[in-house]
């Protein structure tokens, strides 16, 4: 068991390290030119461009830049930017080229918004997904079941951004049934209320998947011998379904939930962009269009870290919970 866990952790670390090197090479050794995009339409002189590059410390060899970045991640580093020395403690993700803020701080400041949105959406898709899935499984083969399966299939197949966009355009802008997103600086109330619309869309669309997983897992479980035993003992149907069957049926759903949450927490890109929610995802998109390399790097790294960690936790948890999982 210990060997399995150790091997699994080593693998996760190796994946993260390569992801780090790959993204660094992609962005910093790639042809993206933050100095140029900073000059924008103004057309800086060659000298000015060189100055900006130098102040961003982009004029040094790539391995040197990488070594510094890598060191910063683990022990922190001092960053010289526009003449002054700024301290950046571990894990240091550098300073934004644009806002001159520390990347870690910028992402952390956006994180509550993304996390709240993710949690609100999660409570919607778990409630609706699991309860509808259980209902459909219990009424398997009836008209209701067929309707649920058909509806989730159709609704889930329409591209997400179209659903979200139409919802945003027609229900928050044209007919403001639901309030539009607000920045947290305009007060907690408007900020929280503004997250309802995106959470509903994200939650509803995601729930279609959960309905199907829960339904299929529940259909299998309800056919098991122990469920028949429980029924024949005279236990009430509600108890059989929710106490005996659902507990067993829910574990694959929890696995997917773990991975989905990792993805949601690292930024719900499309949702945030369409509803103008100031979360991590929107920050990432903005940085992409501004060639703000440190911020993009930070967002990708955090996201990869979340996904790999969640994967690891789910795998190890499974090997404890389910003795049938072969340890390879």
């Amino acid at each position: 068991m210990l060997i399995y866990i150790a091997r699994r952790i080593a693998m996760a670390i190796s994946v993260l390290l390569v992801a780090l090197v790959a993204t660094f090479l992609l962005f910093f050794a790639g042809p993206a030119d933050p100095a140029q995009s900073m000059c924008g339409e103004l057309r800086c002189s060659q000298q000015k461009l060189e100055d900006i590059r130098h102040s961003m410390r982009l004029d040094r060899p790539v391995p040197e830049q990488f070594a510094e970045y890598f060191k910063g991640l683990f022990v922190g580093r001092d960053i010289i930017q526009s003449g002054s020395i700024k301290e950046c403690s571990a894990p240091c993700l550098g300073y934004s080229f644009r806002s001159q803020r520390e990347v870690k701080g910028a992402i952390l400041a956006r994180f509550p918004t993304t996390a709240t949105l993710a949690l609100m959406a999660m409570s919607i898709f778990l409630t609706i997904g699991v309860s509808t899935g259980v209902l459909a499984a219990r009424r398997r083969g009836t008209g209701l079941d067929r309707f649920v399966v058909g509806f989730t299939q159709v609704f889930g197949a329409i591209p997400y951004y179209i659903v979200a966009l139409l919802f945003a355009l027609y229900l928050t802008v044209l007919n403001p049934v639901l309030p539009r997103a607000a920045n947290i600086s305009s007060g907690v109330g408007p900020w929280l209320v503004g997250l309802i619309a995106p959470a509903i869309v994200l939650g509803l669309v995601t729930s279609t998947g959960y309905v199907r997983y829960t339904r299929s897992s529940m259909v299998d479980t309800l056919a098991q011998d122990y469920v028949r035993t429980a029924r024949s003992k005279g236990i009430s149907e509600i108890r059989v379904v929710y106490k005996h069957a659902l507990r067993a049926a829910i574990s694959p759903v929890v696995t997917i939930l773990g991975l989905d949450m990792a993805a949601l927490l690292s930024g719900t890109l499309i949702t945030e962009q369409i509803f103008s929610v100031d979360g991590v995802g929107r920050l990432t998109i903005q940085s992409l269009f501004q060639d703000d390399l440190p911020v993009i790097m930070g967002a990708v790294l955090i996201s990869a870290f979340l996904v790999v960690t969640m994967n690891l936790v789910v795998d190890i948890a499974y090997s404890f919970v389910d003795p049938r999982v072969r340890l390879g």
Binding site: S216, S217, D220, L259, N311, V325
Partner: peptide, 18 residues
């Protein structure tokens, strides 16, 4: 094979009734 690698789309194939 570890279970954690399963993605949503893969598990969707469970939908088929045995």
């Amino acid at each position: 094979m570890s279970l954690g690698q399963g993605t949503s789309s893969e598990l969707a194939s469970l939908t088929v009734d045995g």
